[in-house]
Write a protein that binds this DNA or RNA. Sequence first.
DNA 1: TTTGTATGAAAAATCGATTATTTGAGCTAG
DNA 2: CTAGCTCAAATAATCGATTTTTCATACAAA
Lengths: 224, 224
Amino acid sequence: MAVPKREEAATTRGSRIFDTLRQDLVNGRFEAGQKIAISSLRERYAVGLSPLREALNRLAAYGLLIQENQRGFRVPRLAREELDDIAEMRRELEGMALERAIQHGDAEWESELLAAAHRLKRADMASAEVDQWELLHARYHRTLVAPCGSVWLLRFIDQLHDQFDRYRRMAPGVPEIRRTLDGQHSELVELALNRDVKGARALLEHHIELSYQVALGSCEGRLE
Amino acid sequence: MAVPKREEAATTRGSRIFDTLRQDLVNGRFEAGQKIAISSLRERYAVGLSPLREALNRLAAYGLLIQENQRGFRVPRLAREELDDIAEMRRELEGMALERAIQHGDAEWESELLAAAHRLKRADMASAEVDQWELLHARYHRTLVAPCGSVWLLRFIDQLHDQFDRYRRMAPGVPEIRRTLDGQHSELVELALNRDVKGARALLEHHIELSYQVALGSCEGRLE
DNA sequence: TTTGTATGAAAAATCGATTATTTGAGCTAG
DNA sequence: CTAGCTCAAATAATCGATTTTTCATACAAA
């Protein structure tokens, strides 16, 4: 598998450092546009040069880093234009995937979806549990579209989620919008279980649009 | 840039070997399902271990290799189910991209598209020039959708093309279908220049469907 | 026979050191 | 001044060697 399943523990240093770096990049723990100083990462993560470089190469192919020959790696800049692109693609691809998921999803899917939504609702976004909430949130969205029947579509959606979250996670929380978004998670489950293909798709696209508004507002000033 | 532009010469060994391997993998010069013997590649391409491993890591993240922790790399198997998936995604994504390209493409695009189509028509598929034809074919299709306005969409389309070609290029040529497909290249240009959005999209989807038939027939017996 | 376990060769992953390239400070000529 | 040059320090890329893990085989016990 190109990108290791996030569930299974990565057993090589290269894979471990890949996962760690992916999370740190998505969480905005590196400044956008910043040059990656390989030797300082080496210290920071206490890892050798070879596995580190292999991980950086993977991240570049995945789109979370920019690789320039003889000039090492850089963190991609945040640009409003690109956020527009990412959000638009999410609407298209996740909308497509959700339609298919609703058509193909079986009873087992219904159960898992209910469970994922419930776990998400119970999780507290406050305090130091943000990472946990983010994990459950990502799982919920993946579960929603999982039975769409296309491995490649799911792969692209995952990739876009990581890109989108680079923007969203540095957004200041807007409690009112947050409540709306949380409500939509439950409504989506309901529509999906009722096999309301069009309604669910419309709501999901609206949900992404609203998240996009949050992501946009947050990054203002930082964008080029 | 995650995946180096194919136009610009790769200047590091890692990037050169990445490009070479990508082409060789797409051209089916490795048996599907085969395990990659790293040290034999080292000899075959006369390259050191570090740049080679970095290239393999990139190819795995790109989807042309499967990476298994502690077990090295394998060439992905060919499976009818996956070809179906890839072709279906190509239809959806390239169809979407073409609509947008026709809406946004300017006069310069029209010229480049005409040029790309002409070069392709003049190229001979016979003899040892197949590689050249494949290059022009890929360029034609990229030009067709280039002004769609979405970097991510283009990226996914490129990736799907490489995947699709793994199947198509080991197909035995079917001269009659080949002529039809070649004709469609010209027709597509005409429809695009006439800004016939729906017509062009329909033809492109038909074109992909026909290529899919070729790819399917060819791989029979080899598929699992 | 079957199942489990030891073992050594093969291969993957990693490390430490070397080589090649870029970058920027200081200098020079126009 | 400023554009261009030189050279040394910084950093990226690569190499050769070492460590770790897997895999196939042989052997032992049930």
